[in-house]
């Protein structure tokens, strides 16, 4: 019996989505853990979870969209705050990996190099495979002789694909901002254009990123298992790429919703939330470009 009118804070009625989403999450998590341990039922469980989650989130968000005319500005503000704190949590997630990179590079590798007794001849350089990283890549094998030639990896050249990627993402942030301005000015056609362009730039970024991974694996000998540089490189860029995917998807949804006329010049939280997220992803990339590729 909560008051669904604009002078009251919107308190939704009972809802089954959270409970169902938890079940889906359970399937994903349990499926994932089982998958890693070779259970045959795992892929099914996991797919069911992902599918369920996708469907549920779709319905859930749809419901929110339908309700949204009943939301007053306070609810809007709650959403904004919620989104910014969520982004803060994402920042901290990336901070863990950047921290690891920093620690390994400036502390661990030099310490290992100092440990002459255990790792004779290992020298502190960056990027590093670690004392036995190359062997790790070859798969640890008693007959170490089988280690393939050329397993010492090469770096991704920052001034090639990564540079393009940087430019792409920076450009996409600009186009998105233009889109926001045009939205506020109610210039429909332009908004659609700039928003669509942003999504395309994002997609192009992802395409290049995949290209880069393929190159790393097939030509540079740079893989997840190439010692610690490979680890940090792929986890940082990988999680970033995942976030770009998510961000691009959000913007795509926003675009579709915009075309359906869901937003007004004043009230368009979804657009802003998506935009913040995009700028955050962009900023992380700049960090990556500097700390992972260039330095």
């Amino acid at each position: 019996m909560s008051a669904h009118s604009k002078d009251h804070y919107f308190v939704p009625d009972a809802s089954a989505y959270p409970f169902l989403c938890s079940i889906a999450l359970f399937c994903i998590a349990m499926g994932g853990a089982s998958y890693l341990n070779g259970y045959t039922f795992a892929p099914t469980l996991m797919s069911a979870g992902f599918l369920g989650m996708a469907v549920l989130l779709f319905i859930w968000f749809r419901k929110v969209i339908i309700e949204s005319p009943d939301y007053n500005m306070d609810v809007d503000k709650s959403f904004r705050m919620g989104m910014s704190w969520f982004i803060f949590s994402e920042v901290m997630f990336f901070a863990a990996f950047f921290g690891a990179l920093y620690y390994i590079r400036t502390l661990a590798i030099p310490w290992l190099a100092d440990t002459e007794l255990l790792w004779p001849g290992f020298e502190a350089t960056w990027p590093s495979t670690g004392p036995l990283g190359a062997e790790l890549l070859a798969g640890v094998h008693p007959d170490a002789s089988s280690i393939a030639e050329g397993t010492k990896f090469a770096l991704v050249d920052p001034w090639h694909l990564p540079l393009y990627n940087t430019l792409l993402l920076l450009a996409s942030s600009v186009t998105l901002t233009i889109g926001h301005h045009t939205l506020r000015a109610s210039k429909r056609r332009q908004t659609v254009f700039w928003l669509a362009l942003t999504v395309v730039l994002g997609a192009f970024f992802l395409f290049l990123q995949v290209e880069e991974y393929i190159e790393a694996y097939t030509q540079l000998g740079l893989t997840l298992g190439t010692g610690v540089y490979g680890s940090t490189f792929f986890l940082l860029t990988g999680f970033h790429g995942f976030h770009v995917t998510l961000g691009a998807f959000i913007l795509l949804v926003v675009l579709i919703r915009y075309m359906k006329g869901h937003f007004t010049a004043e009230k368009h939280f979804a657009f802003e939330g998506g935009a913040w997220y995009w700028h955050f992803v962009d900023t992380v990339w700049v960090g990556l470009f500097i700390f992972v590729y260039i330095l």
């Binding site: 004392p131 036995l132 062997e135 640890v140 008693p142 170490a144």
Partner: peptide, 8 residues
């Protein structure tokens, strides 16, 4: 000889 995890 001192092997370390994952070391050959």
């Amino acid at each position: 000889t001192s092997s370390v995890i994952d070391a050959i």
